[in-house]
Design a protein around this nucleic acid. Structure first.
Length: 204
DNA sequence: TACTAGATCGGCT
DNA sequence: GCCGATCTAGTAG
């Protein structure tokens, strides 16, 4: 697969739809980052939807701030934030302008640039099967593996540094929908989606 | 395998 | 001043 084939890049109209529609379709798509001569690619296997309108857990629930302002743009941007004094998490901004919604990328399956991911995550080569599985199976982990940090906040996914490639749609019966992980507000919303039986999903 | 606590700092009240 | 869309190491079983 050619991860620089821009003809397969997801277009603006993929991102500007309702957050739950986009979140359900994101698993299976390919996340690509190409910067400083390093190409990273991974299949998205787990995501969570955050919608500022009715979702207390969303960063945009209380309105626009310096940190979350990119989430109020029209869909198709990258939103990266820093949390717990240690980790970055990355999101795909979706929906219409001023809505304030995004989809958190929680896990990917490594496809290209694995040798860089091993160094970024483990400071050495992956030895065991468990080493490989722990490279990108969590939101903080995948950002560390892909070298994603605050400098990538606001990146335009229509550009050539960070973008998503289309891939065959996952059959609906192979998408699992559950409650979200690691939050204390709006805990009952079933807005987490992952690929059934994929080994790189963060939990269950 | 399962649970717990500590790290660590920026965003927001 | 509080706390988080997390991760890891440690302990107990």
């Amino acid at each position: 697969m050619n991860y620089s084939d821009f003809s397969k890049k997801l277009k603006k109209n993929f991102y500007t739809r309702d957050v739950l529609i986009v979140a359900r379709e994101l698993p299976g798509k390919i996340l690509v980052k190409n910067e400083n001569g390093k190409l990273y690619a991974g299949k998205i296997v787990e995501v969570e939807a955050y919608d500022g309108l009715n979702d207390e857990a969303a960063h945009t629930f209380l309105g626009k701030t310096e940190r979350n302002k990119i989430m109020f743009e029209k869909g198709g941007y990258f939103y990266v934030y820093f949390t717990y004094g240690a980790h970055f998490c990355c999101n795909i901004v979706v929906g219409q302008k001023n809505h304030g919604a995004a989809v958190l990328l929680r896990a990917v399956e490594p496809l290209s640039g694995v040798e860089f991911m091993e160094v970024n995550r483990l400071r050495r080569n992956a030895i065991t099967k468990k080493d490989v599985l722990s490279l990108t199976n969590g939101p903080g982990k995948l950002c560390q593996a892909f070298e994603i940090n605050r400098s990538h906040n606001g990146e335009d996914l229509m550009g050539d540094k960070i973008y998503l490639l289309n891939a065959p749609k996952i059959r609906q019966e192979n998408i699992v929908q559950t409650k979200r992980i690691g939050i204390k507000k709006s805990v009952d919303l079933p807005w987490r989606f992952y690929i059934k039986d994929n080994h790189f999903v963060s939990k269950k």
